[in-house]
């Protein structure tokens, strides 16, 4: 296997990214971006849905190219931190089996004012979904399983 089950993370000034097989903790990611210079913290929590096209999903399983996914996550965070003058930005993705209704991804950003925080939070998620080397497999109630693509049928773009 290319991956291990250990937690892995990268950090650099104002940015923290991690992959973990454990349940995600909302409070700890908020605390990571907390800053006396911030007037807003925006937290996004992506949770696993129980259906796809009305088909009941039993559970979801995520896998990653860990070293590359962490690198891509850090480059997204660093770019958004500069663009929106953020005080902090953190992104954590859960891997392995994620039961229905639990968090699969958390993104937290802090900024002096709320507008920048809202915008950066949204852009961080969209960039993550487009580029980060993580894959989701949906296991359906009928036993079938499907590797999902965020842009089904579209060839991926080369990323820097």
């Amino acid at each position: 296997m290319a991956t291990t089950d250990e937690d892995t993370f990268l950090e650099q000034e104002g940015c923290y990214v991690a992959l973990t097989n454990s349940p995600l903790n909302l409070q700890s990611i908020v605390d990571r971006v907390r800053s006396p210079q911030a007037g807003a913290i925006v937290l996004f929590a992506g949770t696993t849905r129980d259906s796809f096209d009305n088909k009941p999903v039993k559970e979801l399983q995520y896998t990653a190219y860990r070293p590359l996914a962490l690198r891509t996550m850090l480059s997204i965070c660093a770019a958004l931190r500069a663009k929106h003058a953020l005080k902090g930005i953190a992104m954590v993705h859960r891997l392995g089996v994620v039961p229905i209704g639990e968090e699969s991804i958390l993104i937290a950003v802090s900024a002096p004012h709320r507008q920048a925080a809202w915008r950066a939070g949204e852009e961080a998620l969209e960039e993550c979904k487009a580029r980060v080397e993580v894959w989701k497999r949906e296991e359906f109630e009928d036993g079938e399983g499907v590797w999902r693509a965020n842009r089904d049928g579209v060839r991926g773009e080369r990323v820097g």
Binding site: A2, G46, Y62, A64, Y65, L68, A69, H93, S104, I105, L125, C128, K129, A130, R131, V132, E133, V134, W135, K136, W147, R148, A149, N150, R151, D152, V154, R155, G156
Partner: peptide
């Protein structure tokens, strides 16, 4: 070397 199919994070 790695084969990277379309990603599906989030």
């Amino acid at each position: 070397v790695a084969i990277i199919p379309p990603v599906s994070s989030g």
